[in-house]
Design a protein around this nucleic acid. Structure first.
Lengths: 205, 205
DNA sequence: TCGAAATTCGAAGATTCGTTCGGTATTTGC
DNA sequence: GCAAATACCGAACGAATCTTCGAATTTCGA
């Protein structure tokens, strides 16, 4: 099983990378619509225009696509999140930036995100997915840390910080299920709304 | 293809119904852990103790299980929701009751709920799932109506009511992903926390 | 206790699916 | 323009899957 490798000749290399990204994007759309297991390679070949054999010049196998989709989703998001918390801005500002970037990201890559959500059980169970799993955990830790810093310096108040974190994860992760590109609300407005709900929470008097 | 029907003899009828519920519950657990398509009938037979052919006395086919799981999840929830909004309690109280019942339900049936979430694309796409789809929509409409009544009578304030609805759906639907039976927070505490976040939201001054 | 109903078995059937592989066409670098 | 690298094709294979079916066993009701 020779794993396909990018061509060494420079003129073809760019074309190869671009085509591979196309294939992954097409797969993300199909997987989001029909499910990973519910999408056959035959449907994928039809959607990409390639024939059965041609596909395997760009991917190792079907599950390679799933990993590529998750990586395209999590890697840039995690990088951006680390940039934001490296700032010296106060926690509340960092949280707003984080949620804004996060919402914008899942809206733009909503197909990726839908696949990530649907295949969560596979991701959490199989050892092969350790990397994806640790990226998800790293992102959630960044969020939790920001909330913790806000709680400590008194700029945020939570009845239960852990619950607020889970609520935020729920809101944002659910967004791709209903959001439409060029919908009524912009990603920024959505993010602001979410932040308001999380930050307005106060312990019962 | 003779569809399996409950026995007419009374003594066996109860046993049949019970066994069928067992099968559905086992399927819900496996599907939640491994995914619907990722679970083979062979694994199901192993988990139920029945042999391949024996299973088909209780179900029509694999997707029959999926419908049964969704029905067991949505039917009682929808019924309870209708009871609550038939009350004359003020909207805020109705909302608290709704969310409390809802959270308790998804926590208790978290396997069912995880399957429902994972197979959402199938449910929303295929005509066969019209019934499940309409139950989901009916429940969401009940929620939206309560929020609308609260907004009109001034007891609730939303920057954007639609967004608050989606946020609430996100929070609750995500709950099964992290909640543990006998965990630190009771379903009631979780529900109260969610309500506080949704109700505390106010338009920016 | 007897006959019919109900339950269970497990091997076989039919289909679907992911992947491979030999071959052909196209492109690149020299 | 030539040779080598690259891109692509599509039939075919092997494995895995869901479901069926006839037979064997158990259970119920009269």
């Amino acid at each position: 099983m020779p794993l396909p490798s990018p061509p060494t000749r420079p003129a073809l290399r760019a074309r190869y990378e671009a085509r591979r990204r196309e294939v992954v994007a097409t797969a993300a759309k199909l997987f989001a619509e029909r499910g990973y297991a519910g999408t056959s390679m035959a449907e994928l070949t039809a959607a990409t225009g390639l024939a059965a054999g041609g596909l395997y010049h760009y991917i190792e196998g079907k599950d390679d696509l799933l990993i590529a989709i998750c990586d395209e989703l999590l890697e840039p998001l995690l990088e951006r999140a680390r940039e934001i918390v490296a700032t010296e801005a106060p926690p509340v500002e960092q949280l707003r930036e984080l949620v804004a970037a996060w919402v914008a990201h899942v809206v733009e890559h909503r197909h990726h995100m839908l696949v990530f959500t649907q295949e969560r059980q596979a991701i959490e169970r199989q050892p092969r997915w350790r990397h994806v799993r640790s990226q998800r955990k790293a992102f959630e830790k960044i969020l939790d840390d920001v909330l913790a810093r806000g709680e400590i310096d008194g700029s945020m108040t939570f009845a239960d910080r852990r619950l607020s974190l889970f609520a935020l994860l729920g809101m944002v992760n659910y967004t791709p299920q209903w959001v439409r590109p060029n919908g009524r609300l912009s990603p920024t407005e959505i993010a602001d709304g979410y932040c308001a709900m999380v930050l307005a929470d106060a312990p019962p008097s």
